[in-house]
Design a protein around this nucleic acid. Sequence first.
RNA 1: GCGUCGGUGGCGGAGCGGUCAAUCGCAUCUGGCUGUAAACCAGACGGCCCAUGGCCUACGGGGGUUCGAAUCCCUCCCGACGCA
Length: 407
Amino acid sequence: MLKFTIEGRLANGRGRAGRIETAHGVIETPAFIPVGTKATVKAVMPESVRDDVGAQAVLANTYHLYLQPGPEILRKAGGLGRFMNWKGPTFTDSGGFQAFSLQGGMQAMRASKFAKEAAGTDKEAAEDISDQPIAAGLAAVDDDGVTFKSILDGSTHRFTPEASIDIQHAIGADIIFTLDECAPPSAIHEAQKKAIDRTHVWAERCVTHHKKLSNEERSTDQSLFGIVQGGRHEDLRRESARAIGAMDFDGFGIGGTFEKEDMASAVGWVCDELPEGKPRHLLGIGEPADLILGIENGADTFDCVAPTRLARNAAAYTSAEGRLNILNARFVTDFGPLDPHCSCSTCKNYTRAYLAHLFRAKEMLGATLLSIHNLHFLVELTKEARKAILEGSFDIFKKKVLSDLKS
RNA sequence: GCGUCGGUGGCGGAGCGGUCAAUCGCAUCUGGCUGUAAACCAGACGGCCCAUGGCCUACGGGGGUUCGAAUCCCUCCCGACGCA
């Protein structure tokens, strides 16, 4: 079981700096945790994730590893960390998010965003849109769990809360999450209420099952985090945080998919309600500005696919020029570093022109170099935030970072 | 020199009398990606305009047939192959 110590706090009573001690090492928080869905941070060597990126932990996915290579392989390998040669702490997400995304949730989210923009300020039209049922895709949720279709071969699989915990024990990450139901951000109050009720029942079942397995295995190495849901509704967010906060968890996940403007407030409400002495992981967030807002509102750790996905798609974060698309024509002859203020190995050793060439030539090194940079960028940002919290200069830090990011 | 096949937008390559400013792929340009069905997806891609429409210039060059030609005919130029 992990140990969490708070080392510094923000004046707002929410944000903090701390340390999470796991069986496989320490995570100094706030911290950005790179995503390695299928036991690999895409395009980056684990050694590089540690040495070039400076990451303290990685997060993999239960659904994806369950389908391939299967939990027994992970167990036989000696667990996720051994399997992928990652020597530090590891996390696994429960598969709850896939119940959402494989239903077509992400598409529905985008579609509703579009429709809402089209509807403009017409509130009724917007409500109508958010009330539309999501077309069933590769997953379906019921009171007892989630039925998935494999994205690999179409075969049908079932995740109950217990099954998710079973698999996560086989995978063996230091920090594991409860199976939750993630509703789209546009979901109306009633739908979000249903989702949190279900999530709470499942959370309790996960706690029970996790304890049972831990006893059987006579191991307390794995820590279970309960996930808070509730969308953008303050009453539901607080209700969910109180319910989950009262259960016997080692830490908490803050779930949901957020509209840009909802995230910070939702995190704030949740962190007000959660017990203070346990770590909080903000699932799936975020981009540079979101990390700052998440930290300010009380989240300790973060994971997000954006830095690696963006990198593979030729986009790079920069400290003073916003997000760059390295495929833009102007970079072909730009022999400067990607980000002159960045200390990562990509920025120290390679030019924009070279990166542009790699992407144009479809050479995979391009994805690797940009992934290292983007991950380093976010990891470094959280490290600086930690330093600022400990030094009492977070407000100045925040102001500077947000204004630099905008330009 | 004779014969055959061919010359289409940056490239490859469809179309073979009207619905063609011309399918498609590549390249190019620009967007978008937040617990990874994503090394992906989307849009633009002859020029101009009083722009859910209109006008010009275009399918090797020139000429013709036709109400109408990238599509048919003649001729020239160029290419590949075959025979001399």
